[in-house]
Design a protein around this nucleic acid. Structure first.
Lengths: 113, 113
DNA sequence: TGCAAATATAATAATATTTGCATATATTAA
DNA sequence: TTAATATATGCAAATATTATTATATTTGCA
């Protein structure tokens, strides 16, 4: 099981527009740095920076393909997370029945919304 | 569908040790502020701060129960995300066959690991 | 009415993150 | 060997996040 801090690390690592797009792209298959450079329209050093953060966190890995570096997904949590983020949720969660007992005792409650 | 930026917002909001613990606790049921104060052993303003961020992002909501504020989960993505974070993954993802064609052409590749 | 409990808000200070830019390194091709 | 391509690294400026302290608001009750 991941510790709380490991969970936080994974989430923080993914929580960036460029990195989400990199991961979504890697879900489709292997890509090299210059592929991302075109696709994301950001500078090469910036692409490398994001890739190397993702790699440090163990979320992706790469192999050498001549002079290209081919990146691919490594941590199995990624496809699952991306799928949930893509999913359409229609309904909110059911609001709990009013009013469960809390530490301080129960009062007649009025719903906020 | 959530936009990229909405995905980033959700992830960033969850990516904090205190907020993960708040959400995990709310998964079990309704809790009021002072419950969290004891449970998390942080100051009341700090609890309120995290709760109000979670509420601003639409992840939780509350109702009044006398002078208590009872918080509960609202966004249905939360239980799904928490479940995935809890899950134990044994194996890494299978490494892709070496070497798919990339934009720049294919070279005889050597695996990095 | 007025007080106390529960909670929220605001301002601040400390810290962490992100970004852009310049430069360094490594490999290959000519 | 040199030029070109691919990638990595270091650093400073801009920005964001966090915890803390002080203060405000709301509610129930005496």
């Amino acid at each position: 099981m991941r510790s709380i801090m490991q969970k936080v690390e994974v989430l923080k690592t993914i929580a960036h527009p460029v990195r989400i797009r990199i991961l979504e792209e890697l879900l489709k298959g292997v890509k090299c740095v210059s592929d991302f450079e075109d696709f994301l329209e950001i500078s090469q050093p910036n692409v490398s920076q994001h890739l190397s953060l993702l790699r440090r966190q163990g979320l992706i890995d790469h192999y050498m393909d001549g002079r290209l570096r081919c990146y691919f997904l490594k941590d199995p949590i990624i496809p699952d997370l991306l799928e949930i983020l893509k999913k359409d949720y229609i309904e909110e969660l059911p609001a709990p029945a009013c009013c469960p007992v809390t530490k301080k005792g129960t009062y007649p409650g009025t719903r906020h919304r």
